[in-house]
Design a protein around this nucleic acid. Structure first.
Lengths: 183, 183
DNA sequence: TCACGACATGTCAAGGCTGGAATGTTAGGA
DNA sequence: TCCTAACATTCCAGCCTTGACATGTCGTGA
């Protein structure tokens, strides 16, 4: 759905080939909208068919440089400002929490502690990235920095929540929550 | 992918028909793993084929009551404890933030303020739900309450971040970030 | 008794995503 | 000069998701 707009947004900043875009997706955009190689090339062809981007140059190795068109820019603005974002989220981690009554409290606590550690590790990685960015600010990445800050706050929240949730289980003490296989 | 485990988890708590499950999906589970009717019925048939659930009774109106099997319970436990959760998330809201340099600072601020209000509203809704639950605790929903707390913390974080981000734009002052259509 | 809302399931087309395979070119270092 | 890593694109099968359509039953209140 939004892959189309992600590509448009990238090409609005600067023109590039599918290969160029792919690297951007794998680095900065990977955390908010992952995309695979085949997805990207497919989408570029679709966008070109729709007239939202155009091939402006062909380079060696069959390289095609894409640029956004006026129609593409219009579509991008429309999406940014007038289309209500899809805020619904799917979270496999959280889905599991609903079913934690299927395992022992110890196992549940172990799961939450693992989630907490994963969040802490992600947070640490982002902190290092943030320090690098703040030390050498890239004026083009002002808004990327806002997104990164979101990530920092999110992972911190996640970590604190996991710790709190694990404590909840401990405090309530083991309850008869397990149904062994076989009814 | 995980719809299968969501269904197993629900049936592990209590048996029920597709229709029963559908209502659970639309109420409590909707926030972490939305599913449509056709998806659900398809998945139930697949699970039955795989022997992870079984029809234990047939009622009026063609109602089929499904129950989890031992194999299903084993699979659920395996998934809960031994399969690394998919933590990567897609966020359309955040994707837009990356491209906010395509609009004027005023428009960017407006977008962030709208996001902040949406988060605040979601937070309020969850707070009311939490109050109702805490006033009349359902022992079966202990873990659901943990998930709800996650939602409360998430929406609060989201709201605070949006406010902070909007201020960032204000403080930096309008910068030459707009590229008008037509290069 | 009869209409209607809730109960209940099934099917399908269209489209998107995943992961992999296939194919070939080019620049640069050993 | 030759090899290799990086550059660069295309295609595809299989799967999941979405959204709609189709079909029918049962209980209850007017």
């Amino acid at each position: 759905m939004s892959l189309r707009h992600a590509v448009l947004g990238l090409l609005a900043d600067r023109s590039g080939s599918g290969y160029d875009l792919l690297r951007t997706f794998q680095s900065s955009l990977a955390n908010v909208w992952p995309a695979t190689q085949s997805q990207l090339y497919t989408e570029l062809n679709r966008l070109a068919d729709a007239g939202l981007v155009a091939v402006t140059a062909e380079g060696p190795r069959g390289r095609k440089e894409y640029a956004i068109t006026d129609a593409g820019r219009t579509e991008l603005h429309h999406w940014l400002l007038e289309v209500e974002p899809e805020r619904q989220r799917r979270s496999e981690s959280l889905l599991r929490v609903f079913f934690l009554d299927q395992v022992t409290p110890e196992q549940g606590r172990t799961y939450l502690e693992r989630e907490g550690r994963a969040a802490a590790a992600a947070h640490q990685g982002m902190r290092e990235l943030a320090e690098r960015i703040d030390a050498d600010p890239d004026p083009l990445a002002v808004y990327g920095r806002l997104a990164l800050e979101w990530g920092l706050r999110f992972t911190r929240m996640q970590q604190e929540w996991a710790q709190w949730a694990a404590e909840q289980i401990t405090e309530r003490g083991p309850q008869p929550q397990v149904r062994p296989p076989g009814h």
